[in-house]
Nucleic acid binder design. Sequence first.
DNA 1: CTAATTCGTAATAATTGAAGTTACATGAAG
DNA 2: CTTCATGTAACTTCAATTATTACGAATTAG
Lengths: 146, 146
Amino acid sequence: MKRDSRLSSVLHALLHMAQQNEPMTSEQLAACMCTNPVVVRRTMGLLREAGLVASERGPSGGWLISADLAAVTLRDLHEALGEPAIFAIGNRNETPECLVEQSVNAALDGAFAEAEALLLERFAKVTLAKLSADFNRRHAALRARK
Amino acid sequence: MKRDSRLSSVLHALLHMAQQNEPMTSEQLAACMCTNPVVVRRTMGLLREAGLVASERGPSGGWLISADLAAVTLRDLHEALGEPAIFAIGNRNETPECLVEQSVNAALDGAFAEAEALLLERFAKVTLAKLSADFNRRHAALRARK
DNA sequence: CTAATTCGTAATAATTGAAGTTACATGAAG
DNA sequence: CTTCATGTAACTTCAATTATTACGAATTAG
């Protein structure tokens, strides 16, 4: 299974955007994320639908953050991306008649549900503002060492 | 990405095997799991390497559980399968030079590590004996209703 | 108005890993 | 020796993300 890295991608993009107040083009974002402008548009388009970013066309256009960094959490981003499947492991058959499989699924589903709940809780506690602050700390630390 | 359902599969197989004390052939197991005998052999082979099951060739051969059901946990099975990736979501780039990406990865990795730890803890608490007992309860309940 | 820029999006291919299939070798039981 | 079953290699299929190509639509500048 290929892992979905869109959450990581959009975070990367948003933090770069947070560092500068001018619109960034899909091309610029694609360059700093080693991907394709079309992929950027597709993914950022989902964030736009959720009201997290805005896009403008034409020269001097591009993408801008349109929400309060302190109010947007990783969970919001996960939801904006359509709540993709979190686990790469799953049941073979979600609606089994076989009683054995029902027992198996019940056991696995319970464990996965707990882990998912924990993950989403953690996501809900991390705001873009915190991540941006974390980045600025790292940046400052690096410059201090030089 | 296709989800890895091998854990679910082997659990299904093991519980069927636990219900009867004779060896079950790959063909029989494949039939009750709607899959292919070769897939069964490949997957069960991993459990054999971990000492959880034994296989015998020739007529009257097949697969047998060779461990104490009360001692084998879901976590053991997960490990026997080679600890496949649990999450379908991940970072784009595991070793980034970009400081922004480092902040992003640190935040995501922490959350995923916590969720994984919880899941594995849960897995470690579920033994095959418990699952088998759970199945027998369901089976008895169904027969009582009829 | 025209040209350049940038997003919007459809359609298609590449990529990745699990699962399925075919084919044949190996070993055990009778 | 024949039959039955596992052991495995090689290959194909399948599902989902990601990448790419191509073109349309909107906006700005001159």
